[in-house]
Write a protein that binds this DNA or RNA. Structure first.
Lengths: 225, 225
DNA sequence: CGAATAGTGTCTATAAGACATTATACT
DNA sequence: AGTATAATGTCTTATAGACACTATTCG
């Protein structure tokens, strides 16, 4: 029995939710896109440590600086044609990286819109479509009552940027004024980051950083479908 | 590397949340209480199927009739002194069973109050304290926006019984009148079960069964701490 | 009738959503 | 000034929580 780790790494690019995929260079599913991941190094490697290692090796990302949580175990017999493989999936959230990932040792790592995967336009290897769907659903749910959204942002961010996270992950439009009020009303969600401000075109926006609280009370509710 | 399945089976007894535990008959942790569970039968057994099997073997429960969901994988090296064991934990919810479980092949299976485990008064083998805590927290969270509470009840139940579920799992007291209104206001949560009524002492209560919806909109919100 | 439990109604404070207005920068 | 973006304010409606009342059984 082999144990593997698979990563659902989500980020925001151009206001759209993306997932990091690699193109498989070997059979099975040669040429097919798949989640980054791989087998445990040895019988004693910690699962979480393996997730960090794959994050480094396959995505050139530093696991200490980004959000990482276990998604679950996927072990249906037959999910891997090579034999029995149980895979522990992890969900990672990265702040928006403009470049399509540099310095990876996996051939053809690239960001792909999650919509394409969920809608079935982009079929992945193994049961990775399901894992991506589960990861996205987990992220969507967690936006409501945790501060997960800040993991999509850089160290500091504006409220408008935070709103883009919610809009992209949920796939909805939100009223900026009500969003502003709501976010400010959750104690400990965000904290002002100095008198600094960023400049683009109009009035400069206040900068914030992630607050202390990791659970939101009251929650940022998702609009009804 | 060995793969195991552990079960957090929750139920309500006398208005208190209980978890099914077995007393270990072999080393390590001989005599210590632990979660029911065991190793996969062979390299091809499905994980979910193994959970069902352990449910049958160790708790004499029929997996098809109760709620079962994966909790996560626990694989820290050293969690099992015998060697590397990765365990997939499952959360099961059973309707209140008055008897302390009959016909199990595990020595000393018994229902224990979860409070004792969470408060640390009852120490379990391996990392099972943590798994129980995770399972209870999952159940608590899921009561809010899913129909999980009905899994604690029998086929039919009164609204007062449903309220007891929320109170026991959350460990809070709820206003019966507001609860009644709220529960009735969630479309598809519960459905009237015929003109039947049950009789105890006062006015007979209407009987309900679980509705079609598994997600609650609006949610049954947990009171602030 | 009185006790016990079930179910409905009312009032008030708070939160949510729609939408208008003011503020501060840049060219 | 004109434009673009940020931040605040107001109004209306829905929801949550506290609490009072009516209904239906039994002894």
């Amino acid at each position: 029995m082999l144990l593997a780790v698979d990563l659902v790494i989500l980020t925001l690019r151009a206001g759209e939710l993306h997932v990091l995929l690699v193109e498989r260079g070997v059979e099975p599913y040669l040429g097919r896109r798949a989640l980054p991941g791989g087998f445990l190094n040895n019988a004693e490697e910690d699962i979480l440590a393996a997730a960090h290692r794959e994050l480094r090796e396959e995505a050139d990302l530093d696991g200490t600086s980004l959000y990482l949580e276990q998604l679950g175990a996927y072990g249906t017999p037959g999910r891997d044609p090579r034999g029995r493989v149980v895979s522990i999936a992890y969900l990672a959230i990265a702040p928006g990286l403009p470049e399509p990932v540099a310095g990876t040792d996996a051939s053809g790592a690239s960001w792909q819109p999650v919509d394409a995967v969920i809608a079935g336009r982009l079929r992945l290897a193994f049961d990775h479509d399901q894992i991506v769907a589960d990861g996205v659903e987990r992220a969507r749910a967690k936006l409501e009552h945790t501060s997960l959204a800040t993991a999509f942002c850089g160290d500091t961010f504006t409220i408008a940027e935070l709103q883009q996270v919610y809009e992209a992950v949920w796939g909805v439009g939100l009223d900026p004024r009500n969003f502003y009020r709501k976010v400010q009303g959750v104690p400990g969600f965000i904290a002002e980051a100095g008198p600094d401000r960023r400049t683009t075109k109009g009035r400069p926006a206040r900068l914030f950083r992630a607050g202390v609280r990791r659970t939101l009370q009251p929650p940022i509710t998702r609009p009804d479908l």
